[in-house]
Amino acid sequence: MATILPAMLVSAHPSLGAEASPWDGDWTGMLGKAHPWPVSITISNGKVVSFSERGAPFEIRYTKITPSTVSFGDQNHYSIKLTRTGDATASASVHGRHGYETGSLTKG
């Protein structure tokens, strides 16, 4: 009985042993060169869970994370690729209905 209890505790909390992604956290910054606008991205457990531009949320249908990049979007209207430039900084490239833009973000 004593050996069953620890096994139950480990299986009940599989995320306890999982290592957090270095991308996990809140990323904020600006996109666009001529008329920059604010963006906010939240990444949790290796997945983009929220994205907003100018405070308006966008649907996220896919996320692909590697140690150096994060790609996400909805496949029909926009796609974003973040590329790590430092421990808490990233460059961003966005392709949407209105063309292609770039920007930078910092992890808060």
Rank of each mutant, 00 (worst) to 15 (best):
K81A: 03
P67N: 10
S79K: 08
K64E: 09
M1K: 07
A34Y: 09
S50N: 06
H98N: 15
D26Y: 15
T28D: 14
T28W: 12
V70F: 02
V70A: 03
P14M: 01
G17V: 09
D74E: 03
A92I: 08
T106C: 04
F72D: 01
K107L: 04
S15T: 13
N45D: 12
W37R: 12
S71R: 15
W23T: 00
P38S: 06
M30E: 12
H95T: 09
T106R: 10
F58E: 06
A2E: 15
T28F: 14
M1I: 11
F51Y: 13
G103C: 05
V39W: 02
N76H: 08
T83D: 07
G25L: 05
P38Q: 01
S52R: 08
A7N: 13
A56C: 09
W37V: 13
G32L: 04
V70W: 03
A7Y: 14
L9G: 10
V49R: 09
P57K: 09
I65K: 00
A2C: 14
K47V: 12
A7P: 03
F51V: 02
A7G: 14
K47A: 12
M30I: 08
P67A: 08
G46N: 01
F51P: 05
G46V: 03
G25C: 03
E59W: 05
I60E: 08
S79I: 06
H35D: 08
P67V: 03
H77Y: 02
K47S: 14
L9D: 11
A20K: 09
V48S: 02
H77M: 05
S68W: 03
G103H: 06
V49Y: 12
G86P: 03
T42C: 06
L105F: 01
R97G: 10
A12Q: 02
T28P: 07
T85D: 09
P22I: 07
A34G: 07
K107Q: 03
S44P: 03
G96N: 12
I65C: 04
I41P: 01
F72N: 03
A20Q: 11
H77V: 05
E101V: 14
S68T: 15
G99A: 06
T106L: 02
T89E: 07
Q75A: 07
